[in-house]
Design a protein around this nucleic acid. Structure first.
Lengths: 221, 221
DNA sequence: CTCATACTCCAAAGAACGTTAGATTATTAG
DNA sequence: CTAATAATCTAACGTTCTTTGGAGTATGAG
């Protein structure tokens, strides 16, 4: 009885460790973060994570075996997606824990936003209220496909690489809030910098769709 | 710029992976689960996890380097504890994800409770209401030190190994709800089995203090 | 059919990890 | 003081994991 109890426990903890093994590699975490933005092909994932296609495929296989992602074949491409929103919630959870516990990570994140702020950071609920009343303009600076897969309410799509050409569409009489994939993504930081240089009042909103949804706020598709 | 962006991202994800590495070993997960019950010495942890003292020490060092646990020396003993409730919340989070995604784990858990239920399982809020009104008796069957470190409201301490001798203290006119360390712990299962054999109406409550607290319910100390 | 593309499978090298044993450091008991 | 206990450190073994290169499938284009 003592013996079987130990065996059962070993089995149970080993199962949870399968999830742990899936998230102990930086590249796999980055792939999960990317997949939080919506379905993507292996090729696209490899390019955005800065790794070879073969390596991406291998990592995705690991994630698939842990049932964190699933695949769909369409033509020549294989598209991967998270198996559910709980996986995205988990990514938000482990990243939050790391941010809270690891001073190195806090320092690195602070560097991203060490530039002077004209406007103070917002909470999700505050932003939702302001956006609803039209007091701010919310920009989604991710690629269009990610915007289509799900975006913040009242947000307008304005991919980072089109931003310079489309400045005329933006208002000078109210603040602009730019967001992207989340705290580890640099696109909204770049966008806010560019806009501020051009004389707009812009801030970066740290959260992405995954964080927004994990906090129980609504996402538009 | 492209290059530094990649370097920053690599650094950020590598930091989160430090947490992932800490939870990719079954033994380390079990140690975290045990520490959710309160502060414990290395010796105690090693014994309860069924590993050697040396190995426990090595794993605890890993957890300490990830800042998930911290140590305190008292006399000849070193006592470890979680660095905060967010670590316990994370354990609940990764275990829940595993339960949801891994069919093997679901099957193993179902085996634990395949015995016929006289009473249906309860939610945390339901239990709290019943306990408050005195409609059920709540038993904490963990070792006394864990009860003292924090327990469910209205719960009475009744360690599993004392249960047989103290049956006279238990009521026959209302249901008894036994809980222990959580879903992976077998103590409450055993307790409920024993009580039902002896003619009491008893059920096992799956959640432990960590799950209870993670759901926002109050814990008594 | 042939070719290019997108991806997966297999094998191999090197790095990292889990585990155990032996020696070492603190602390308490006698 | 010496002996015993609790824990850590170091070294070493075998194992697993990451990453790359080469070969092999499926799909679509010409």
């Amino acid at each position: 009885m003592e013996n079987t109890g130990r065996q059962v426990k070993d089995l149970l903890y080993a199962q949870v460790a399968r999830i742990g093994k899936a998230v102990c590699s930086p590249k796999r975490l980055e792939l999960i973060d990317l997949l939080c933005q919506g379905e993507k092909s292996v090729e696209r994932l490899a390019e955005e994570a800065g790794i070879s296609l073969k390596l991406a495929s291998a990592h995705l296989k690991e994630l698939r075996q842990a049932h964190l992602v699933e695949a769909r074949k369409e033509g020549k491409n294989v598209y991967y997606r998270l198996t559910g929103n709980t996986v995205a919630d988990f990514w938000v959870s482990i990243r939050s824990l790391a941010e809270e516990r690891l001073l190195d990570l806090q320092a690195a994140l602070d560097k991203l936003t060490e530039h002077p702020h004209e406007l103070k950071p917002l909470s999700g609920k505050e932003l939702l209220g302001l956006a609803k009343n039209g007091e701010v303009m919310v920009l989604d600076v991710r690629p269009p496909s990610e915007y289509e897969a799900g975006h913040l309410p009242y947000a307008q799509s304005m991919p980072l690489d089109e931003l310079k050409k489309r400045l005329s569409e933006l208002p000078r009489d109210k603040p602009i809030v730019a967001y992207c994939r989340g705290p580890f993504c640099l696109m909204a930081v770049e966008a806010a910098e560019l806009l501020n240089k051009k004389g707009f009042r812009a801030i970066r909103f740290e959260e992405g769709v995954a964080e927004w949804r994990a906090h129980g706020l609504p996402v538009e598709v």
